[in-house]
Nucleic acid binder design. Structure first.
Lengths: 150, 150
DNA sequence: TTTAATGTTATATTAATTACAAATGAATAA
DNA sequence: TTATTCATTTGTAATTAATATAACATTAAA
């Protein structure tokens, strides 16, 4: 496997090394894929993409690398799709939108009042996920174009 | 199976009948269970509970009934747990909290500004789910009691 | 270079969910 | 009432995401 991982940020590599994480080619490939493809991919999307350049990689490695990156606070895992997890290179909490037409998951900017709440109703809040569902702007455009031409 | 489903609301039965849904004993058992046990149960919790009184019921029936009730807008499905779905007798959108200690899912009251937004960033919003994670008030109490006595 | 520790791979397993065909049961028409 | 039709339920198999595990490979340290 080639070692050309210039796309992985020096800062992230520093942080991981400092925590004693060994930066293997497989792990770097996962990190690089997430950095370049910010479309919130699933495990098998990541796996098949890396596989094309690195046929020997195993799904188990992708799973374990994502697990590790999540525990290190470098990425976040989403469960916006009912059937499988999606991964976001950006670990900061933010809202996500899933289009029911094209299936795209995208970030949305929302000024959310509970984002920084430490407690709610007496419960200690450690993490917040907000998932929005509907039809994305692209698909809305296509819908209205189809209507016009009919 | 006995037909003693007084706990299922007349209004709901009316709405379903009006839509041509046949109110079989199995379906009424699922509805009744959800109404009485509002702890956001999973499919197998519903299945095993009903099974005790009605041994012949099949998981497939529970799945299909929940699917039907969701499509009819009578209940909502949550994906706050990573591995399996949870069901809420209340179809109105509201926030949910999952305790990482005891695993309980509970409703939380939050005055949410995106609840009634029809669009966000050009996307049409049809549904919103907000999941909060942390330690519930009960488990916090137990934690502090354990600390005091040590 | 040898040894120890860690990471990777392949495979098997688990568990939720879906698919489907056969059996059952309810509603309707004769 | 009985026969027919159609939807529902059941049991089973298939699918699929995710986890567990053991053998193998690689890296780091002695």
């Amino acid at each position: 496997m080639n070692n050309n991982y210039r796309k992985v940020s020096k800062e992230m590599m520093e942080r991981l090394k400092k925590k004693g994480v060994r930066l293997t080619p497989q792990r770097l490939a996962v990190i690089e894929f997430l950095k370049v493809h910010k479309g919130h991919p699933s495990v098998d999307e990541i796996y098949y993409a890396i596989r094309r350049k690195y046929p020997s990689i195993s799904p188990a490695t992708v799973y374990s690398t994502l697990q590790m990156l999540k525990e290190m606070g470098e990425i976040q895992e989403l469960h916006i799709r009912a059937d499988k997890a999606s991964f976001d290179y950006n670990p900061q909490p933010h809202h996500h939108f899933l289009c029911r037409i094209c299936g795209t998951i995208m970030d949305v900017e929302v000024d959310c009042p509970i984002r920084n709440r430490k407690t709610i109703g007496g419960h200690k809040v450690e993490k917040v996920k907000a998932y929005l569902f509907g039809v994305c702007s692209e698909c809305l455009k296509q819908e209205s174009e189809a209507k016009e031409s009919s």
